[in-house]
Design a binder for these strands. Structure first.
Lengths: 276, 276
DNA sequence: CGACATTTTGACGCTGGTCAATATTGGTGG
DNA sequence: CCACCAATATTGACCAGCGTCAAAATGTCG
């Protein structure tokens, strides 16, 4: 992987507030670029933990480079993958409640994070008042992403989940509105499965199916996105017998536009009834 | 339901900061109970929306009385239930990102909420600096609860999910360490199913099964908890991918320091361990 | 009382989990 | 340098949990 082979150390060991803002994806919020505090960085080697479940919180982190996986481990040792934070993502937000981390975060690749000392938040450093709204937004985004994932897993089938995951991941890898055509997956099939609520075998099968459908080209950890649009739209591939029906053309089938004229009394029901 | 039939208006139309703290479950954090600002309340009738998806955020809310359901609706009108906020829960945290609500919240019963004006947050009212950490904690708790739910749905089978849900719900209904033995479910089977990632039929069947097992006594919306402990412990485990085979090493006390030479991808396997 | 929403119960079948065997990669030791 | 081994990935066969379709019972509201 010739990714960050360039100038790894030169990238920075400290970032200004406005840099962190941009990193988080809030370019507009940079208001006071003056003598604002600079945040230190911290490097994490692959396989090393950034935070551990139960550990008292010392800081929050914003990923600057590399990939992580965050997961919880129940008493029996089983683990559930909660996400794969990468550049621009906040790590450790679940620790603000109870001042203890509620999950593990380990680096999957060589990684670099911006350290946001907990003091800067709890110590009510009003000098840093500029980035409090920023934190709110970042944490809130965690929640939104979480809900989005729940929606994904409870709505789509296995193949569609994997497809969306790949599209999403590739999108987040390509740094600036560059969907990224080729990526090296930093996580195992099992981790993907845990994240999506599937088993590793099902993930593997989904990969094969997507490859056979011509949407991607996957070999082990190497992934080529051939049809990003189809990946994102896909609802079902489900081709065991008639996979090659229309080669080259694969668009989503017409969805059900069932908006039944349900009438009940009050306002909320309009959307309540539609369920199914 | 003769619940809040008593003195509905008398309960309060404004709350002090410390009262909100207690309501949120952070009794210790009440620091400046002096001339602190008082927050107005707002009543919501069953079936009425507290917030709507896409709507610009005007305030956050803390439920004081009653039950809500929060859900997202995709383009086709299908809805996914995200939670059933009740007394002490924060509503609207997902709106801090992008200043627009990312979900609907409708009252399932007669309800009463504390209104926390958005201004009090964005306007960086440092006069209210006391409750900023509080908000952080409350929002963070949302995330933790979310993860907990994901863990639940991806590890347990249908019956176990429903069992845990009922135990959980009854627990949250009984106000003070009172597990609550009888509750009136404010939501439909379908809503429960959406919340747990099941269909309404499966939920209904699970209810019947739990009743037949003598754990609960359920008739329509009326629910009696007969064996709270069994409900919480019940595990029909059917899902999880990893089976812990390696009986030897379970604890991964390996500190953040370099444990061993990292070959490509390994080393964190100590806790990934047993994974397969 | 009649229409509709919600719930219950049954039968059937598909998706995806489980078990199992093999292939491939990459690191280690002789 | 090559054989060996562990971890990961792929693929197949089997089957069961739960979604789907369907119908009937019960409750609710106008």
């Amino acid at each position: 992987m010739p990714s960050a082979a360039k100038a790894p150390t030169a990238e920075s060991n400290r970032s200004s507030l406005s840099q962190v803002c941009r990193l988080l994806g809030f370019p507009g919020d940079t208001a006071a670029p003056r003598g604002e505090p600079h945040f230190l960085h911290r490097r994490v080697k692959p396989g090393h933990r950034l935070v551990s479940q139960g550990e008292p919180v010392e800081a929050l982190y914003v990923v600057s480079e590399g990939h992580f996986k965050t997961f919880v481990a129940d008493e029996t040792g089983h683990q559930l993958v909660l996400g794969f934070p990468t550049r621009g993502d906040l790590v450790g937000a679940d620790a603000l409640f109870e001042q203890r981390h509620a999950s593990y975060s380990v680096a999957l690749t060589e990684a670099d994070v911006v350290v946001i000392p907990f003091k800067a938040l709890a110590g009510l450093g009003h000098g840093t008042g500029e980035f409090e709204p920023l934190l709110y937004r970042a944490i809130s985004r965690e929640i939104v992403a979480d809900h989005s994932l729940r929606s994904l897993t409870s709505t789509l089938g296995a193949e569609a989940r994997v497809a969306r995951f790949l599209a999403n991941f590739a999108e987040r890898c390509g740094s600036r509105d560059a969907p990224a055509t080729h990526v090296t997956l930093p996580m195992t099939r099992q981790e993907i499965g845990s994240y999506l609520g599937l088993t590793l075998e099902t993930v593997s099968r989904a990969f094969s199916a997507l490859a056979e459908a011509g949407l991607v080209d996957v070999a082990q950890r190497e992934l080529d996105i051939l049809d990003p649009e189809a990946l994102r739209v896909l609802q079902k591939v489900h081709g065991s017998a008639d996979t090659n029906r229309a080669p080259g053309r694969r668009t989503a089938p017409a969805p059900v536009a069932a908006t039944r004229p349900i009438r009940r009394n009050v306002t909320w029901v309009d959307m309540l009834g539609a369920a199914a």
